[in-house]
Design a protein around this nucleic acid. Sequence first.
DNA 1: TCAATAGTGTCTATAAGACACTATGCC
DNA 2: GGCATAGTGTCTTATAGACACTATTGA
Lengths: 224, 224
Amino acid sequence: MQPKLNPPPHNAVLTVDTVLLTLSEDELKLALFRRETPPFEGQWALPGGFIHDDDDSTKAAAARVLLQKAAVQSPYLEEYGTFSGPARDPRGWSLSVVYYALIAAERLSSHIALFALDALPSLPFDHSAIVSGVVSRVRSKASYSSLPVHLCGESFTIAELHHVYEKVLGTPLNMANFRRKLEDLSILEPIAGAQRAAGRSRPSQLYTLSKRFKNTLSIRERGL
Amino acid sequence: MQPKLNPPPHNAVLTVDTVLLTLSEDELKLALFRRETPPFEGQWALPGGFIHDDDDSTKAAAARVLLQKAAVQSPYLEEYGTFSGPARDPRGWSLSVVYYALIAAERLSSHIALFALDALPSLPFDHSAIVSGVVSRVRSKASYSSLPVHLCGESFTIAELHHVYEKVLGTPLNMANFRRKLEDLSILEPIAGAQRAAGRSRPSQLYTLSKRFKNTLSIRERGL
DNA sequence: TCAATAGTGTCTATAAGACACTATGCC
DNA sequence: GGCATAGTGTCTTATAGACACTATTGA
């Protein structure tokens, strides 16, 4: 047993906040929850909570918060950064570690409140700054990685994934080139024999995300 | 005045650790300090310290630590991420926010202990993991941004900067192409009339880092 | 004037973008 | 068969890489 060592006490408020993004009604949307406790009780805010002594890490705390508040288990959960200081929380000096997750709308329980990014309510703490920081990080990563694939469900067609990329990036992408670059990300596995028929046209092959990239990203040197 | 609100007490050890890198003896090196207090008293470790109530943010805490321990004021100081959990520090559940800085050797006081990255002593806590994480982040950012310029002093030639990039990336870079890409990063300002003569050859123009990029990076879409 | 490095011009190879084409299933 | 979308082939354009060239100074 180690001798008891005493760091100077720091009464920081220690929290995690999570930015949960999904694609709904053909738009990138943010999940918000009404705060159940002061401060800012009753206001819309990012799902967050205190870090507990029995959390294995801040990431584990974020996963727990998402499970408890949103009832989702997001395979992709990544740290964005920390927000800290004496003034951001009325309870005193605070530090929040921010995580973000992208998830298919079909995996979210339908009673979760979703807001379009250009129609967010006013948010407490520095949550507005957090959201805009995360959104620009996500847009940036989307432009050279497999990140947006997490907005698709278990199986999807290339056309669907193409559409998701266009929505996240906000710019049209040539389909032929998109296919070539997807190829070289090598994140997709065709589901043998599974196709999706739409109307009277040729059905398209269904794919699933390769296991290897469920929790991590595939990166391309030169943009998507 | 807000009513006093009580978050559940969390006795986390709250620290910042900094990874201070420089180029010395033609190699990328890490600054380490001997710990002056338990735990691991006397061992080489990253410069770090507790977050104080009067720090304005974790970044301010990191800047303070660098100033107090290494007597350097680094213009470029960026958050890498957090390391946390119940087991990484014998004092109990801990959270460390890690920052990294790159600085010219000439701005470091000469008594600071520098270690080549492939000859580090064994480090306490999870400092080894922190260092390797930061180093790969730095190598990656160096490949498409102005990051390595912070390893140069106040004024420098293009040949010198070219050499710094090669050392950080560990790979030779064609000089003509390097110049073109530097041009388009547009981070340099020629110092009018200032040249550096070396031996009996043509002297080279001296440049300085544009003010705009002292604290931030210039990014290129497609690699350096 | 020549040694030595600074700095530029230009050809070649590779990758991105545009776009037309073929393929396939349903009505 | 032909409509509609899936998926491919290929031409054009931009950028990266290689390399040879000119420029400028000190000895």
